[in-house]
């Protein structure tokens, strides 16, 4: 039976649409060798109204968590004159590969909030890298192709995920406890609330 949370924060009146964040707790399991005896995978669905919302970033605050970094390589591809994925979430300090996989040049830059850089021109098959060393949102553009837009959300937390085409997401290996959660999608302000994450409970979050 899902628990229903209404995030009627001071920001809510400014937001249009409804974001439904359904968080299901799955798979309470011990992690061998970890100082955390039990962790859970937080799964859910992001919706705007009744529509599942892809490319939303969901994360849990964990400012004091200095756990090991993921070995996963993060790639923001340039392909068919588009960035792929369109939304990327990484932890602070992560280095992201930006390969050019098109037969034309791209000029990737970010001059607004977050990390500021201009990678210049680089030909097909080559890769440049950017280390995102501060939390925040970086809007990534190509100075040659105006339709190329991507977002890199840099988080000071190891617990985050990006929703897929069906709006589904999984935040892996979260120690049970009470967390402040956030959700973000392009063009909207962050959704923020607080929830305990006891094993075996489903959480639905509706954002008005």
């Amino acid at each position: 039976m899902p628990l229903l949370f209404h995030a009627d924060t001071a920001h809510a009146a400014k937001r249009r649409g409804i974001v439904c964040l359904a968080i299901a707790l799955w798979c309470a399991s011990p992690v061998p060798g970890s100082s955390q005896a039990v962790v859970v995978d937080v799964r859910g669905i992001v919706r705007v109204g009744n529509r599942p919302e892809p490319d939303a970033v969901i994360w849990l605050d964990a400012p004091n968590d200095r756990g090991p970094r993921s070995e996963k390589r993060f790639v923001l591809d340039q392909r068919n004159a588009a960035f792929f994925p369109r939304v990327l979430a990484v932890r602070v300090g992560t280095t992201v590969d930006l390969p050019n996989n098109d037969r034309v040049f791209h000029n990737v830059f970010s001059f607004h909030d977050g990390k500021r850089f201009d990678l210049g021109l680089y030909p097909v098959g080559t890769t440049r890298q950017v280390t995102f060393d501060k939390p925040g949102l970086s809007r990534i553009f190509c100075n040659i192709h105006p339709n190329m837009v991507a977002y890199v959300k840099v988080l000071d937390s190891p617990y985050f995920a990006v929703s897929d085409r069906e709006g589904r997401f999984t935040i892996a290996a979260v120690p049970p406890g009470t967390y402040t959660y956030h959700a973000w999608r392009p063009g909207r302000k962050d959704l923020t609330g607080s929830s305990a994450l006891p094993p075996g409970k489903d959480l639905d979050l509706e954002w008005r």
Binding site: D77, R79, N80, D97, T126
Partner: peptide, 16 residues
């Protein structure tokens, strides 16, 4: 120099 794996699964894009 770095070589990254080509991502797959991108849908068709139409620019107008």
């Amino acid at each position: 120099m770095f070589y990254a794996t080509i991502a797959s699964g991108q849908s068709i894009a139409v620019d107008w």
